[in-house]
Structures are given as C-alpha cells and as structure tokens.
Simulated assay, not measured.
Amino acid sequence: MKKFTRKLLTIAAPLALTSLPALSHDNVSPTYLPESHAPAGVMADHLHKQGEWMMGYRYMRQEFSGLYYGSGKTTAAAAAADGYSMVPTAMTMDMHMLDIMYAVNDSLTLMLMPQTMSMDMTMATSGGGHGDMQMGMEMDTQMPMHGTHSHGTSGVGDTIVAGLFRLSDGPSHKLHGTFGISAPTGDVDKKNSNGTYVHYGMQLGSGTWDLMPAITYSGARERISWGAQASARLPMEEENASGFQFGERYAATAWGAYRLQDWVSFSMRLGYTKQHDINGHYNGPHNHASPADLQANYGGEFVDVALGANLVAQRGRLAGVRLGLEWSSSVSAHFKGYQLGRDDGLNLSLSYAL
C-alpha cells in the first residue's frame, strides 16, 4: 500500500497549495466547506441544488490476511482437521467507481454508480482434504497439491442507480433517504482453468437485482460536524444465473469531523456491518477444497474504525475540486466459519460539482 499512498500525496498536494492562504469562513460558500460531504467511505451522503451535476471517482481497497474462525484466529492445521486441503493466506480487493449525480430539484438528486472490480487471493496447502461432498461436484484438480499459488478475477461489477430525497433541511441538521437498486451487471460465472467455478466471493457481482435503501443524518455547528447512516442491501431474487444468492447485508456508521482550516477537515468514523451467509449453491462443477468454496464460510458481524480527511480547493483552476481520503481498520469481527481476517482498508473520493 506504500506505493499507492505516495500517489495519493501527489493528488492531495495541488489541492492544498491552491487553498493557501485559506479564506476566512465568512467568505467561503457552504458548498466549498469540506464537512458538507461525509468521509470518503460513506456513499449517497449528500444532495445537490437544482440543476447541479457532480462528477466523481471513488476508489476502495481492502486487504485480508490470517485465517479466522468465529471471533479468534485459527490455523491451517485446524482447517485440515475439518477436511480442507487448501486455505487462503491473503487477499486484496480493489473497486473503482464513477460517482455521477444530478439534482432534479433541491429535494431530489439522482445517482449513477458503475464500477469495476479486481480481486487477488493467495492460497496454501493445509494437509487435509474434502471428498466428493455432493453429487456432480469436482475436486480442486487445477490447484497444486504443495506450496502456494495465487489466482484472481477482474472486470465490470454491478451498477447502482439511486434517488436521494430530502426529508429535512434545517440550518444545523439535515436528513435524507436513499432508494437504490443494484443492477446485476457483474459476472457471476467466472471459472477456473479446469472449468469449475471460482470461489463465491471472487465473482464480480451478486447476479441478482438488489434493493439498497438508506437513511442519512448530518449536523454541524461552527467547526464541528457529525453524521450517521443506516443502510442495507437486500436481494430481490432467490438465486442468480449460477444458482446462488448472496445473503442480506445491513450496515450502520456514525462519524464526527473537525474543520481545521476552511479547506480541510479531519474525521473519525465507526462502522458496523452484518452480512448473512450464502443461500443456494453453484449449479455447475465447483470445488470443496477450501473454506471459500463453501457457503457456510461467508458472512459475520464486523466493527471497523476509520480516520480520514476531506480537502477542498478554494481558489485557482482547481477551485471546488474535492478530495476525500480515509484509512480504516478492524476493531472486532465475528466470522461465520473459516475466513480471512480483515486488515487495513483505504477509501478515496475525488469530485467536482458544476
């Protein structure tokens, strides 16, 4: 992640330079204040004025390592005793999203968010081994039976279409709802070289039409701001074209921020996620050699903490350009079955309204 951090600094530096000397708060438009947007890890967090467009880019990276079972760390030997011949040792997930918003009026903003995804996983032999657990299932014959190997998937992910509607708009407190739909534009039929499906979690989309409701509150007083959001992802189909359905996902997050200067604010955020496991199973040949091949090894409850900064250029050619950066880390986790632990994460948002 060090190389990527250096790239972020090259983006942040011009924004900081075009904001100095910072203007006083009395001379800054409210839309130029950094706290008018939530931390970078929060989506669908704000509305726009009638006729206004916002063009944005978001990047999310999550790293995973270490084998866990329930709330504690476990070993490859324990997985082998449960019959797994392969165990994951590390994984990275990267998401690139366009964030396009248009305000029909002051109370309704539309949002379109297409995305691409890439995932890479490293695995190692454990010494155990599942047999042919279900009729028609194949063993993981493409994997070497010694040492480690890596594999990955990449491509277009699901596309989010949403409407954000204002519920309350006071001088210090705001409330809005979000009605979103996730369209299944991401593949759910990615396969290994021997024709078996890849791990469920390495498919690029859900494969189902999903409802994505949310409600977001924000408040501010002088240099201090705060907010909270509750959201969900609810599948509207029992199974996708590959025969399974990702479980429901519920999330809640709350944050506070302090504006150090008119062009920069710093934030702290706490997030909670509950993810159900997978329903159904692949309708074609797939493996049972590793935990990621079985539906019961998905889902759990997770608590993360995040530290971030929002920057807004106040003058020059970059005036109005926003950059949000946020680093996240796991506080506690309870995994269903055997899963990789959640390590550091990085959120970036870059946007401009016109």
Rank of each mutant, 00 (worst) to 15 (best):
G127L: 02
S242G: 08
L348N: 08
A103V: 15
V156F: 08
S193N: 02
H130I: 00
R342M: 05
D26I: 04
G177A: 08
G177T: 00
H176G: 01
G170Q: 09
Y282W: 12
M133N: 13
G131C: 04
M123S: 15
D106F: 14
L8K: 13
G128N: 05
Q50I: 14
S206Q: 07
A251K: 13
D26Y: 09
F165I: 04
Q203P: 01
Q295Y: 00
G163K: 10
V312K: 10
G300M: 01
D106L: 09
G300T: 03
L294R: 05
H286D: 01
G177F: 00
H281M: 07
H149V: 00
G83S: 12
M101N: 14
H149S: 11
M1Q: 03
G284R: 02
L318Y: 00
T273R: 11
R259M: 15
I160W: 03
Y69K: 13
G177N: 05
L260D: 10
T116R: 00
A162C: 07
D187G: 01
M212Q: 11
G337A: 07
S206R: 03
G131D: 06
D120W: 05
Q142R: 04
T216E: 08
F246R: 03
M135I: 07
N27P: 11
V161I: 08
G320E: 02
K73R: 08
W327S: 01
N310D: 14
K191C: 06
H334Y: 04
G163N: 02
H96R: 08
S330H: 08
E222R: 10
T116F: 07
G83C: 14
P285D: 12
Q275V: 13
T253C: 06
G131L: 02
A319D: 02
I11R: 13
A251H: 04
S206H: 02
D45F: 03
S19M: 10
E326F: 01
F244D: 07
V28K: 13
R269D: 09
T5I: 06
T10Y: 05
Y250Q: 11
E248H: 09
I181K: 01
T10P: 10
L110N: 00
N347C: 12
S29A: 15
M123N: 14
Q261H: 14
G227P: 14
A309K: 02
S19N: 08
G320Y: 04
A81L: 13
D189Q: 09
Q142E: 10
M60I: 06
M135F: 14
A38Y: 00
G345T: 08
K73M: 03
T273P: 04
V188D: 03
Y69N: 09
H176P: 06
F335T: 11
R249Q: 15
L294A: 13
A12P: 02
D106P: 10
R6L: 11
I160D: 10
G157D: 02
G70V: 15
D277S: 14
A76R: 02
H281Y: 00
F246A: 11
V42S: 03
S168V: 08
E326W: 04
M111Y: 08
F246Q: 03
L346E: 06
L20I: 14
L311C: 10
